[in-house]
Write a protein that binds this DNA or RNA. Structure first.
Lengths: 115, 115
DNA sequence: TGCACATGCAAAGAGAAGTTAGCGGGTCAA
DNA sequence: TTGACCCGCTAACTTCTCTTTGCATGTGCA
């Protein structure tokens, strides 16, 4: 319904960077429909498991998806992923707000550089 | 107030990729306050003009800022940039919608590869 | 003329991100 | 025991992105 608590500038950049990828967009789209385990998801999306793993790791790191390990009826370990519900509203103003909490770039003043 | 018309999947990825950068976040934040010309903006942000140019080009390409060339009172050419107002709402569902309009990955089926 | 200010672009290096290939582990059923 | 599933990892390659450096353009003013 309403927006999530505003992210810090750094987190926002991280989340946006995570979403800015076609594979990861598709992963979220697939998981928004229903949770799935890695191998199944890889088949559905038509990509390798190794590649999917990497993208899932990034999505998890950004807090956009979560996983839980479960045992299937026939005893196999299955790692199920699902999307975390989120609402992100981006406008010039909201971005300006986030900019205030960005970690400052390493200002390397030549005079101070000798430290 | 309300949201902008939904972007295509590819455009969304482009826009997100553009926003996923601290420099560009700061540029938008600065321009959200007031329009500025390149050299001034570079001084304010403490980055080189060349670097800023690159980021402004990306922001322009993504449709997030726009520029107009103006002549200052003393006859110098000044390129003023300003933010385009935009509202982007990101949720798992909105992303799932965008995913449908992504250009499909080059599926290189070995059987068809000989074309 | 020379300096200060404005604009632009391109080459090249460094670093980050994406992708593949190959290896390891496990359970179950034939 | 073999094959079909499930999970994971890393090394190495390629590709993309960021950033700096350097050069070229223009105006106005001392």
């Amino acid at each position: 319904m309403s927006d999530d608590p505003p992210l810090s500038g750094d987190d926002l950049v991280r989340v946006l960077g995570t979403l800015a990828n076609p594979h990861r967009i598709r992963v979220i789209a697939a998981l928004a429909q229903e949770r799935a385990y890695v191998s199944r998801l890889a088949r559905d999306l038509g990509i390798s498991r190794a590649l999917l793993q990497v993208h899932l790791r990034k999505l998890t790191a950004a807090g956009l998806v979560s996983a839980q390990l479960e045992l299937s009826e026939d005893g196999k370990a299955m790692k199920y992923y699902e999307v975390k519900p989120f609402v992100l509203r981006l406008t010039p103003d909201s971005i300006a707000d986030a900019a205030r909490t960005l970690t400052p770039p390493d200002t390397i003043d030549p005079h101070e550089a000798e430290r």
